[in-house]
């Protein structure tokens, strides 16, 4: 696509590629959307909605799309026996992935608080926390924002587009987009190619934002430990929120436990170099 609109949002670089130039109104709306999203969910700014919840607890009214995010987290929390949880925020912060980016673990790893009525109520688009609690939507938030940007483009009648949030992407095109799957240990190489026609492809890798020895941002809420056996995942799904969340979930649980609930394709790469993939991605990896 010939036209590219680039911006930074929620801590990463974004590009929106389209066949025709975006009118200023579309660009403005996208920038307002991502700024609003950041103002609610960013753990890294003291004035955000989730920062207020972390400081004092209480009630936080999310935008309308917060309800879908809550439903997805709730489903995954159940399917993963609590491994995928919006309450890993305190674990991440304790390990140094905090608002100050101290990158220094503060305490031994501890499990996240169980997600129940006493810790966090997520009803529709309203969050209620009896006590201060850190909510982290990192597993699915970026994907949801990709979808929300795409829906702005849909609303303005933009026919073909690619929304790319540094590797998490949603595409609607005349023909499939060829996407390389980045080698987990070598950004100059790819381990396979995926044709992305319509829908989303999201990646997650344990080396992203790696910090300290063996600590990284995919945390099992049940143990507080980081996940080391899976090193990279990719998920194809109709929407980016689902693809993003499942890419994280596949670090923590078996794909077959997700298969009855979600429609998706996946690749998992393990620390010993072997890979698992679903039939939808059969042939995507380069053969040995």
């Amino acid at each position: 696509m010939e036209y590219s609109f680039a911006f930074s949002a929620i801590g990463t670089d974004w590009t929106v590629e389209t066949a025709a130039a975006l009118v200023p109104a579309v660009r403005t709306e996208i920038l307002e959307l991502v700024a609003d999203y950041d103002a609610v969910y960013s753990r890294f700014r003291p004035d955000s909605g989730v920062a207020r919840l972390a400081a004092a607890g209480g009630r936080l009214d999310l935008p309308d799309h917060g309800a879908a995010l809550g439903r997805l987290y709730s489903t995954l929390y159940e399917l993963s026996d609590g491994a995928v949880s919006p309450l890993v925020g305190d674990v991440l912060a304790d390990q140094g992935y905090d608002a100050a980016y101290s990158l220094t673990p503060k305490s031994p790893t501890a499990p996240a608080r169980p997600w129940d009525r006493d810790s966090l109520r997520w009803e529709g688009n309203v969050l209620t926390a009896p006590r201060p609690i850190t909510v982290d939507v990192g597993a699915a938030g970026k994907g949801q924002l990709v979808d929300l940007v795409a829906s702005v483009l849909d609303r303005f009648g933009v026919q073909y587009y690619l929304v790319d949030a540094s590797g998490d992407m949603r595409h609607r095109g005349r023909r499939p987009l060829t996407v390389a799957l980045e080698h987990p240990y070598d950004p100059t190489r790819a381990i396979g190619l995926v044709p992305l026609s319509e829908g989303a492809l999201c990646a997650s890798a344990s080396n992203r934002r790696a910090w300290a020895d063996g600590l990284h941002h995919v945390v099992d809420a049940r143990t507080g430990c980081c996940v080391q056996t899976v090193v990279a995942t990719w998920v194809l799904a109709p929407d980016a929120m689902t693809a993003d969340a499942l890419a994280t979930a596949l670090f923590l649980m078996e794909p077959e436990h997700l298969a009855s609930t979600f429609d998706f394709g996946y690749v998992q790469v393990f620390s010993d170099g072997h890979a698992r993939f679903s039939t939808a991605l059969d042939g995507a990896l380069f053969p040995p």
Partner: peptide
């Protein structure tokens, strides 16, 4: 589904791709 015993890397320079999905090393 399937299992591949070993992933194989091919230089991106040698591939005709439009996008890359992954997470470049930043540490």
């Amino acid at each position: 589904g399937g299992i591949q015993d070993q992933i194989v890397g091919v230089r991106l320079d040698d591939l005709a791709v439009e996008k890359v999905a992954g997470s470049s090393l930043t540490s």
